[in-house]
Amino acid sequence: MATHDIPLFHLENHPFEMGILSLSDQATLELVNDKVRIPHRHDHYCFFFMESGCLNFSVDFQNIDIQPSSLLITRPGQIHELGFAKDPAGWLLAFDAHFIDEKARSVIDQSFLKVILLKLDAAEKEGLCTLFNLIYSTENEKSTATFHHQLLQTLINALFYKTVLIFQAQENKRIQNHSSRIVEITRMFHQLVKDHFHQLKKPADYASKLNITVSYLNDTVKAVTGFSSTYLIQLEIFREAQRFLVYTTKSVREIAFQLGYEDEKYFIRLFSKTIGTSPASFRKKYR
């Protein structure tokens, strides 16, 4: 499967550049079932809100079970596919990034977690359920009134803000022993790696961009994440390599070159050390 054959789903043909589906609507689910059961990407955000039942997804090679009272967030560009569904009830909401306040969006985009799955308490579940229902009923009005689009955008932002508050509360528990400066440096490093891993391969490259020493970067990142900066850089690189191995017919040599490695053997050695298996074995397992 060539790179261009990986389906990339857009929202440009949807009214208001958003869409919402009830997961308990079997007729609607059957229409989209064939699309979501193959690996695909979105150019937008998706929220999978599970009230009851279960959905199984693979998101960037991580197997995820969305249990009752849970919310899965997928970000633009992540490759995912549906595994199975068991009596699902809840909502699927898709929306373009431009809908959302940039500062709120950055909280999710700069998360240390590659896959964001939130477990909700009763009050959080009830609050999100109310917002999903409001978005659904408003979208179904199909109104051409002047402020209808603005109303939808406001409701989606309200949902996003509420989700960010829940996410921050849960993430703060994980990082509460670290100073705000250390956490912010780690977030900035994480974002820089996502933006520049094709070109920048060494911790020194990122330390320079952050105007700190390499040793301070290493100590900071290790304290917050438990991993070295070198490992996290290589993990980002080889996640992209995993996508190429499974979803394209490129050779290992071609993938290595595209990711900035002229020495194929060195690339294979690093991939095997980081992922725990060789590129060839990984491709054989997932194709």
Results as ranks from 00 to 15, higher is better:
residue 6 I to H: 10
residue 236 E to V: 07
residue 5 D to F: 07
residue 237 I to F: 05
residue 30 E to A: 11
residue 61 F to M: 08
residue 5 D to L: 10
residue 214 V to L: 14
residue 180 S to G: 07
residue 187 R to G: 11
residue 198 H to W: 08
residue 35 K to W: 09
residue 136 Y to D: 07
residue 207 A to T: 03
residue 144 T to S: 14
residue 110 Q to E: 15
residue 74 T to F: 02
residue 144 T to L: 15
residue 282 F to T: 00
residue 47 F to M: 04
residue 249 T to Y: 11
residue 92 L to A: 05
residue 190 H to R: 08
residue 129 C to V: 00
residue 55 L to E: 06
residue 158 A to G: 12
residue 245 L to V: 03
residue 221 V to Q: 09
residue 273 K to P: 01
residue 221 V to N: 08
residue 247 Y to H: 12
residue 5 D to K: 14
residue 207 A to H: 04
residue 260 G to Q: 11
residue 90 G to A: 03
residue 261 Y to P: 01
residue 274 T to Q: 10
residue 50 M to N: 13
residue 207 A to K: 02
residue 237 I to D: 07
residue 201 K to A: 05
residue 23 L to D: 00
residue 247 Y to D: 04
residue 123 A to H: 11
residue 247 Y to C: 01
residue 233 I to W: 07
residue 179 S to G: 12
residue 27 A to S: 14
residue 194 K to S: 08
residue 72 L to E: 01
residue 182 I to T: 11
residue 4 H to S: 10
residue 210 L to G: 04
residue 213 T to L: 08
residue 251 S to G: 12
residue 284 K to P: 13
residue 187 R to M: 09
residue 143 S to E: 10
residue 56 N to Q: 15
residue 155 L to G: 01
residue 19 G to W: 02
residue 109 D to E: 09
residue 283 R to T: 01
residue 267 F to W: 02
residue 112 F to H: 04
residue 258 Q to L: 14
residue 214 V to T: 08
residue 238 F to Q: 03
residue 9 F to C: 05
residue 43 D to C: 10
residue 204 A to I: 04
residue 251 S to N: 09
residue 136 Y to F: 15
residue 286 Y to A: 03
residue 165 L to C: 05
residue 220 T to R: 00
residue 34 D to E: 15
residue 101 D to S: 08
residue 242 Q to M: 12
residue 81 E to V: 02
residue 225 T to Y: 07
residue 27 A to T: 15
residue 234 Q to T: 02
residue 180 S to E: 10
residue 77 G to M: 01
residue 186 T to E: 10
residue 184 E to L: 15
residue 110 Q to D: 12
residue 147 F to Y: 14
residue 269 R to F: 06
residue 157 N to C: 05
residue 188 M to I: 12
residue 101 D to H: 02
residue 210 L to Q: 03
residue 148 H to M: 07
residue 46 C to H: 01
residue 164 V to S: 05
residue 239 R to K: 11
residue 255 I to N: 12
residue 133 N to E: 14
residue 237 I to Y: 02
